[in-house]
Simulated assay, not measured.
Amino acid sequence: MDGTRRVERPGARRPLWIEEPVHRPRMPDPVRAAAVRAVLLVALTLLQAMVVLLLTLAGSWWAFPVLLSTVAGVVATTWCVLDVWVTRQVWRQRHGVVSVPSSTAREVRRVRRPRYP
């Protein structure tokens, strides 16, 4: 803070939020969409597992069909988590990642680069 105080006028509207700079850039849209899907499926699968546990403790015949559904949910959740990883890698390859090559790699690029007068 710079030490100055803000004087609020009566009746003046304050913004609902103040944006602050972030240290890390936002995730790309395809990666974020895959991550949201994965989180929703993880939550649903955990909920199903809890329901299976409660139905088993209650001795209900519904426990087995819900268990089968939970197993399918675990497979789908695993697929979605892998999708996040693959989508992130594909996005990085297509849009490039800022990297600093080593001095050896830099030297090899200089040798290959055509020289224009």
Rank of each mutant, 00 (worst) to 15 (best):
M1G: 09
G3M: 01
G3T: 01
R5P: 01
R6V: 13
V7I: 11
V7M: 05
V7C: 01
E8S: 11
E8W: 12
R13L: 10
R14D: 05
L16T: 13
I18F: 06
I18N: 00
I18R: 07
P25E: 01
R26N: 00
M27E: 04
D29S: 08
D29Q: 05
P30D: 07
V31G: 00
A34M: 07
A34N: 02
A35T: 09
R37L: 12
R37P: 02
L40S: 05
L41E: 12
L41T: 09
A43D: 14
L44Y: 07
T45R: 07
T45N: 08
Q48D: 09
M50D: 14
V51D: 08
V52W: 03
V52I: 06
L53A: 15
L54E: 03
T56Y: 12
W61M: 05
W62R: 09
A63H: 03
F64K: 02
L67V: 01
L67Y: 05
L68M: 12
S69K: 00
S69W: 06
S69Q: 09
A72Q: 02
V74M: 07
A76S: 09
T77F: 06
T78E: 00
C80A: 14
V81P: 00
V81Y: 03
L82T: 05
V84G: 02
V86H: 08
T87V: 03
R88P: 02
V90E: 13
R92L: 12
Q93M: 15
Q93A: 15
R94Q: 12
H95K: 04
G96N: 08
G96L: 09
V98A: 10
V98N: 01
V98E: 07
S99K: 08
S99C: 08
P101F: 11
S103A: 11
S103Y: 04
S103E: 13
E107W: 08
V108Y: 10
V108S: 06
V108Q: 07
R109N: 15
R113D: 15
R115Q: 10
Y116E: 11
